[in-house]
Design a protein around this nucleic acid. Structure first.
Lengths: 249, 249
DNA sequence: TACTTGACGCGAACAGTGTTCGTTTATATA
DNA sequence: TATATAAACGAACACTGTTCGCGTCAAGTA
């Protein structure tokens, strides 16, 4: 039996390849790979679908929408953050290490930290980390109300700084320079700009360029974290029953 | 002389209305109005053009691209932030007031604060504010290196928190509830979620729902700001020549 | 006065976005 | 084997930022 030719006016739907089963896991992994390599901006449903050899509509059988995909990727990243067993003798240092670790983890995943903004922990790993940080603070004698506030502030601080840092890196993607050269040029231009400011109008900015532009991103993060941790410590040493710190002139 | 009818195959370009001159000022004002009413997401070049009775391509004679438009709108918002004359006797309180003012200003302009992230002050009002904050800190005896770091951290903190707060508000735009009802429902659901967490796995989160969800956004901002300001004060009282704080066990 | 130049505005088009809808295909179940 | 359900598919919708070539207008110059 010879094959009957298909009439040229008939549309046939030709699958491009044998179907490999999609899964949520596969979509999330692929999405994370794209973000890692090219940033959030490159993450479109079409792009993920293309990487998987399918069409964007197919993804919706596994994730509700793009926002859900982002949340899933974010929680995947959170899985890389370790939670130590609380030690009351060194709870402050444990907090510092854990937060520095989180900052580093986010820093290795492009601008994924943006997803953490306005994102109250409800996913498995976000809850695990929140529980862990809360445990460390309570073990160290931090009053619960303060611990709750600090959980929130730490989360904001880490995500905001990691996201901001990543935004600078994002700008290099549209450039033909490598990252180091790009950042050096960018911040060099900012130095020159500040040096060229009219001293009559901006004498302090123009006169303290080194102080303003000297420290790098990691130093800035560590400095702010130190401030927060020192402030937190003062609630343990000074606190009375309702969690109010002793007034300090 | 009667008018000669236009042949129907000829495309004529019919101006929709008498030309009112566009200007950068007009585009920025219109953009800000859209952001204020509907958030950054509603700000497209087409939308601004439509509001001005023109086409999107016309905007490019006045602004280089959308990013420049955002920067101009942002600086417009910054113009609403007052800068006091430094008073060495109450420099800390001045800083607090100025930062609270900035937070309030950003809060009244939807999610514009996002533009401030990774945005080193170079525009007129951003420079004015940076110079003002620097002046207050230096007048209060803060070492220049610390002042430079704090400028950066304050900027990040204000923009991040204002932006995060606005993200919650943004979600209400797609809802049929008014803002208060929406926020109450949202955070009520979060409370229930935390209360329903398995106590075997998340005992602290499940057991401290009130501490975690009680404070509102303004309280959280103020608490974090207080931490930073207390930390900053310690650099003035404790600082030696190189700006290092005295070690505190 | 006629011509040139620059600024401004315009419409069409490009290449892209998230998502829905109805249909087709594959798999599971009775 | 027939039916039901889940997964995948293609087309389409309504939208995005931006560029390109063209037309119009005003100002400047020969």
């Amino acid at each position: 039996m010879t094959d009957i030719p298909v009439p040229p006016w008939r549309k046939t739907r030709v699958p491009s390849a044998p179907r490999t089963a999609l899964s949520r896991e596969l979509i999330v992994s692929t999405g994370l790979r794209i973000v890692d390599a090219e940033g959030l901006e490159a993450l479109s449903m079409r792009r993920v679908a293309q990487e998987l050899g399918t069409g964007p509509a197919s993804l919706y059988a596994h994730v509700a929408n793009k926002e859900e995909l982002l949340d899933l990727i974010y929680d995947r990243v959170m899985a890389e953050i370790a939670v130590p067993e609380p030690d009351p003798e060194r709870w402050l240092e444990q907090l510092r290490e854990m937060i520095m670790d989180a900052f580093r983890v986010f820093g290795s995943h492009a601008d994924i930290a943006r997803v953490g903004l306005a994102n109250i922990p409800t996913s498995p790993n976000a809850l695990r980390i929140a529980e862990g940080q809360l445990a460390i603070m309570l073990a160290g004698g931090v009053p619960p109300r303060i611990a709750g506030l600090m959980l929130d502030r730490f989360g904001l601080y880490i995500c905001a700084d990691a996201y901001e840092s990543a935004l600078y890196v994002n700008r290099q993607r549209g450039s033909d320079k490598d990252l180091d050269a790009f950042l050096e040029e960018t911040f060099g231009q900012i130095r020159e700009f500040y040096q060229s400011l009219p001293a009559g109008r901006f004498p302090l900015l123009a006169g303290h360029v080194d102080a303003l532009t000297g420290p790098d991103g990691d130093e800035r993060f560590a400095f702010g974290l130190d401030l927060m941790l020192r402030g937190l410590a003062s609630y343990v040493q000074d606190a009375d029953a309702d969690g109010s710190p002793t007034p300090k002139g």
